[in-house]
């Protein structure tokens, strides 16, 4: 299970970074989303992968509970990622309106020459 997760995280990171390097803003957004998923999955793995019961008071013996902290962290990171995705979607839409393309290579007007 651990090895499988390691491979999945690695693949997610690789595709995320690859998409970040593409020229289209849409691919950039998907790349950012994949990077976020990879980081979240990594957090999940770091909490320890083992079967257990829900960590709620009274649900059972404490020793059998899974670690709730990574879940809380991931939930927070997902919500933040959600907000950023929403923002960047609107932003790229506006960029498409202003620049008339989704090609990042054509968005060079602010670059250092």
């Amino acid at each position: 299970m651990l090895i499988l997760l390691a491979v999945v995280i690695g693949v997610l990171f690789a595709t995320g970074v690859y998409l970040l390097f593409r020229r289209s803003t849409v691919r950039l957004i998907i790349g950012l989303a994949l990077l976020g998923h990879a980081a979240n999955l990594f957090l999940f793995t770091m909490g320890g992968i083992r079967p257990g019961i829900v960590p709620i008071v009274g649900a059972g013996p404490v020793e059998q509970m899974v670690d709730p902290v990574p879940q809380a962290l991931i939930l927070t990171a997902i919500v933040i990622g959600f907000g950023i995705q929403a923002f960047v979607l609107i932003l790229s839409y506006r960029a498409h309106e202003e620049v008339g393309t989704d090609d990042l290579d054509q968005m060079k007007s602010t670059d250092v020459t």
Binding site: G83, A86, L89, I90, E97
Partner: peptide
């Protein structure tokens, strides 16, 4: 509120 703002804005364009 956030979701509606985003979606309504995109939907009205």
């Amino acid at each position: 509120g956030t979701v509606l703002l985003v979606v309504l804005n995109l939907g009205e364009e």
